[in-house]
Design a binder for these strands. Structure first.
Lengths: 157, 157
DNA sequence: AGCGCCAGGTTGATACGTCAAGCAATGAGT
DNA sequence: ACTCATTGCTTGACGTATCAACCTGGCGCT
């Protein structure tokens, strides 16, 4: 066939990264699901909500924090509300309802965060050690900047 | 609330990684979809198929390469067959049908791979440069090993 | 040969993500 | 004050992922 056998060093390294990301992700996700009965999406929303003092914030704020589409968030909140993890609250301006963390939701995230953090440390932070971790993060930040630049160019086209 | 404000260095670096992975992924995926009308799943299956001389291999082999569930693969192949990218072929043993890359599928992947590779270089490989890339890949490999060890322990429990 | 077993694949039900269209409440223009 | 444009949220439809149940054809056993 041709091109696909000629994988250079760089491409093999790219594949290593892809593999790592895939496995790490699925491992963390499965753990969260098994131990805490939370999907990754549930977890993310709950974490964002705890970042407010009042366990409550406008939907738009959650949307901004998660960078999700509004419709995705809306569906997600509906499902989470059905399971009693959050509840929708009408704020003073009826257009922009708030979301509040219920006690059940708070209990769930309180259990999940330490477990998740422990897992992240065991599988990632401690594996790399401080210096390599710093280098890794720096690399990620650089890639992020490159992405931003690229995106800006695409938008202005 | 407490714990979530006390994000250490390490946790912020973890978040940086998560952000990077998310954005990089979605950027590559969108590009593939827009330019080549292929989903990430399509792309992966097609790449695996080109790794065979005959553009054809047993379903099980694709499953092993992609590490997907058999049902996911089956659905995916059905959809790809409907779109004419692949076709199912009965092999000598009727239990284990083969999948073959059609001409259309070959054309699609032939267009997609160079574009994708170019993107990966622009956004990742070239951003890091050779030495940092090597360090990065080494880190990924180490995390992968840690994951394997962890998984082994889980299985033997 | 007839019997059940089993590995692997397919199918169907359900949950999730995305897109496009709809809806509701405010604020600006007249 | 009435209309309407805007903004953000919700809804519905469709494509995809996952889980469990179910075929199906080859294999060993008696």
């Amino acid at each position: 066939m041709g091109w696909e056998q000629e994988l250079g060093e760089a491409d093999r390294m790219w594949r290593t990264y892809i593999e790592m990301a895939k496995h790490l992700n699925s491992h963390l996700q499965q753990h969260l699901q098994r131990e805490c009965d939370l999907s990754a999406a549930d977890f993310e929303v709950l974490v964002r909500l705890t970042e407010s003092e009042r366990r409550e914030m406008p939907v738009a704020e959650v949307a901004a924090a998660t960078q999700w589409e509004k419709s995705r968030l809306s569906h997600q909140l509906t499902r989470m509300a059905q399971r009693g993890l959050v509840e929708r609250v009408d704020s003073d301006d009826r257009r922009y309802p708030d979301v509040r963390l219920t006690d059940k939701g708070y209990a769930a995230i309180s259990k999940a965060v330490p477990e998740h953090t422990e897992m992240v440390h065991a599988l990632f932070v401690d594996v790399l050690g401080p210096e390599r971790l710093a280098g890794f993060a720096q690399a990620c930040a650089d890639v992020l900047r490159a992405l931003d630049r690229h995106r800006k160019r695409d938008c202005t086209l």
